[in-house]
């Protein structure tokens, strides 16, 4: 049964990794603007790539 302790530590570490990823993305400003990225992806990239 003691293996459960190991499993728990591993699972918390993995979850911790996701928490860090989340905090990182917040810090990066990914949640500041929730409108333009959704629009931007729909634009035809033809012209922006020519630069």
């Amino acid at each position: 049964m003691t293996v459960i302790i190991l499993l728990l530590i591993v699972s918390i570490l993995i979850a911790g990794g996701f928490l860090i990823a989340f905090l990182w993305s917040v810090n990066d400003g990914q949640f500041d603007d929730d409108i333009s990225p959704a629009q931007r992806i729909l634009f035809d990239n033809k012209k922006t790539n020519t630069k």
């Binding site: 699972s11 928490l19 905090l23």
Partner: peptide, 17 residues
């Protein structure tokens, strides 16, 4: 101000575990 995001993220993580 992004502190609220940090707080919610950390609280959610700890709560879940």
């Amino acid at each position: 101000d992004r502190t609220r995001w940090y707080k919610i993220g950390i609280a959610g993580f700890c709560f879940g575990n």
